[in-house]
Amino acid sequence: MPNEDHLLVKIRNYAFLVIGLLAIGIAIGVELTVNPPETAPFDLLPILLRGLAVTIELTLLGAALALVVAIVAGVARSSGHIIVRTITGFYVEVFRGTSILVQLFWIFFVLPLPPFNLSLTPLQAGVLALGLNVGAYGAEVVRGAIGAIPSGQIEASIALNMSPGLMMRRVIIPQAMVRILPPFGNLLIELLKATSLVSLITLSDVTFQGLALRQSVGRTTEVFLLILVIYFLLAYPLTLGVRWLERQRQWAT
């Protein structure tokens, strides 16, 4: 169709570009790991990059959980059912109102104790803490975007005899997506940066490898400079993606 300027269509068209850039990034990372340059500070890189897989794994799994939690809790927060709304409101306020580090410690150190007796691996604990924390912020984004849909859209859906579920799926969520995507991009960046906290529950991510390396060889400035660059190179493409999304809002108004 000539006028398919829908945002999601554009994303589909650009997907090959994003996948291409990711592939190049991964190729460079692999190359650096397999054939490390000898000169300082790059000789430290192979050890630091060993933590890269953990950081990326945490980011992806945490983001997947956060996305599901955000949509479910965001829709529940917009629900007409007062009990559903109160329970999700409690969850959102607790996870937004306390430190993510404390949440991580609770999940990893307190949950295994009575009366909970719930032992999680460090990876599970990390994904759970990141997903629930970022999901709480995401839920507010979803709630705000749903609340911003004009009431006329809901009235038109009722006049066309749509069920509440159908209205949510085909009318409200697709329109809310335009408002949701840019803030979700920012939350993904926050999540990526917050993964460094899991080094404190013995997960060997990039930060953990850096701390270990500093203990064994010193060279503090070089170690933390490399870590800084690694996180920046991971986050910057996401930042560019968010900016691109923010520019694509033709039919948002």
Binding site: M1, N3, H6, P150, G152, Q153, E155, A156, A159, L160, N161, M162, S163, L166, R170, V171, P174, Q175, V178, W251
Partner: peptide, 29 residues
Amino acid sequence: GSIGMVFQHFNLFPHMTALRNVTEAPIHV
């Protein structure tokens, strides 16, 4: 189901083409 309505402010679905605005409810409802 036997009542239809046209609104003062149109209330078309902005994320759908004219054709899809018209086919949406017949297909899904």
